[in-house]
Every structure is written in structure tokens, then in C-alpha cells.
Amino acid sequence: MKNLEKSVEDLIEILSSKEQTVSFAESCTGGRIASAFTAVSGSSNILYGSCVTYANKIKEEWLGVPKEILETKGAVSQECVEYMLRGMQKMASSDYTLAVSGIAGPTGGTELKPVGTVYIGLLTPDGNSDIHHCLFKGDRHQVQEQATRFAIELLEKNVK
């Protein structure tokens, strides 16, 4: 398995060479994706910005996630992540956008959405979104780290 820092370095190099940018809308990862990028020199060439939209109110106000989606589907849903992607892209005008929303635990899980349930999405320059429903195992830190890695790998698979 490739080192996360090496993946980020490679992404920065590729996106820089293509003069493309990225932005993030994070919930359960709490800014870890942005942190992984800003830890590497050169990230300022490609990273437009990131929002940690932890509360539903902020998902609604900043990213335009409809209250109805949050009430009927929940913040941890494919539909919410789709709106998070579109809202962040609209705000940042980046080429690629990643969005993550999930339940890191140890509380908050339900029978239908147990702890470790995370939706991770990517919006590409052609306007297509690719959203994945993941179920990660482990404690809070492990779920957050797995979600961060998955998101970065998803971006990596799509920019090459």
C-alpha cells in the first residue's frame, strides 16, 4: 500500500502539471484531507480551499444541502454528499471536489447506519460525481483515517 504522503505528493505534482485544482467538503474527517495536503510543499498550487461542515446547519447554509435532504435522508447519505460536492464546487470553482460525511463513532450509529458508515464522493471536471458508501471498522481515529485515505485514493485514481 502506497504511503499517504507519497500519494499526496504525486497528486500535487500531477494536478500542478495539468494546472488543475481541488477543494474539499469534510464532515467526519474533520479537516484531515486538507491537513494531508497542506503538510506537503506545493499544495498551494492546487488546493483552493476546504470546509469542515460538521453541523447540519452549516451543511445547509454553506453548501446548500436542502433541509429536506438532511431531515429525510440524513447527513450521512449519498444525497447529502452529492449536495456537498456541488456546493463546495460552486463556492471554490475547483476542477475536482471531494466530500465526506459519516459516523466515526463511538456514538451516533444506528442499525441502518452503524458506526463506520461513511459516504465519500468526488466531483470531476466534467461534472460527474462518483459517490461511495463505505463501512469502515475500528475506533473513531481509525474510521477517520480510513475515510481520509479512501478519499485521497479516489482522487488519485481519477486524475491519472
Rank of each mutant, 00 (worst) to 15 (best):
1 M>W: 07
1 M>P: 07
1 M>V: 12
3 N>C: 12
3 N>I: 11
4 L>W: 05
11 L>C: 10
14 I>F: 10
16 S>I: 14
17 S>Y: 08
18 K>Q: 13
18 K>N: 12
18 K>F: 08
21 T>K: 05
21 T>N: 08
22 V>T: 07
22 V>M: 10
22 V>H: 00
24 F>G: 01
24 F>N: 07
24 F>C: 02
24 F>M: 06
25 A>G: 00
26 E>W: 08
26 E>V: 09
27 S>Y: 02
32 R>W: 09
32 R>I: 06
33 I>N: 01
34 A>Y: 07
34 A>D: 08
38 T>K: 03
39 A>F: 04
39 A>E: 07
40 V>H: 05
40 V>Q: 05
43 S>D: 12
45 N>G: 03
46 I>P: 00
49 G>L: 05
49 G>Q: 05
49 G>Y: 02
52 V>G: 03
53 T>N: 09
53 T>Y: 10
57 K>E: 15
58 I>N: 04
59 K>P: 00
64 G>K: 01
65 V>P: 00
66 P>A: 12
67 K>S: 05
67 K>R: 03
68 E>H: 00
69 I>T: 11
69 I>N: 01
70 L>M: 11
73 K>F: 13
74 G>K: 03
74 G>I: 13
75 A>Q: 03
76 V>D: 02
77 S>F: 10
78 Q>C: 06
78 Q>L: 01
79 E>F: 06
79 E>W: 01
80 C>S: 11
81 V>D: 08
81 V>S: 06
84 M>S: 05
86 R>I: 15
86 R>N: 10
88 M>R: 05
88 M>C: 13
88 M>Q: 12
90 K>T: 14
90 K>P: 01
90 K>C: 14
91 M>I: 02
93 S>D: 14
95 D>R: 01
97 T>C: 15
97 T>F: 01
98 L>E: 14
99 A>R: 07
100 V>C: 10
102 G>S: 02
103 I>D: 02
108 G>F: 15
109 G>F: 15
110 T>S: 15
110 T>L: 14
110 T>E: 14
112 L>Y: 10
113 K>W: 12
114 P>Y: 04
114 P>E: 15
117 T>E: 14
117 T>V: 15
118 V>R: 06
118 V>F: 11
119 Y>G: 11
119 Y>S: 01
121 G>I: 13
122 L>M: 11
124 T>N: 12
125 P>A: 15
125 P>G: 13
126 D>Q: 10
129 S>R: 00
129 S>F: 02
131 I>E: 04
132 H>Q: 11
133 H>S: 13
133 H>D: 13
133 H>M: 06
134 C>D: 03
136 F>C: 08
138 G>K: 06
138 G>R: 05
139 D>S: 03
141 H>P: 03
144 Q>H: 07
145 E>Y: 01
151 A>L: 12
151 A>G: 04
152 I>L: 14
152 I>C: 10
152 I>Y: 08
155 L>Q: 08
155 L>W: 11
158 N>P: 07
159 V>K: 06
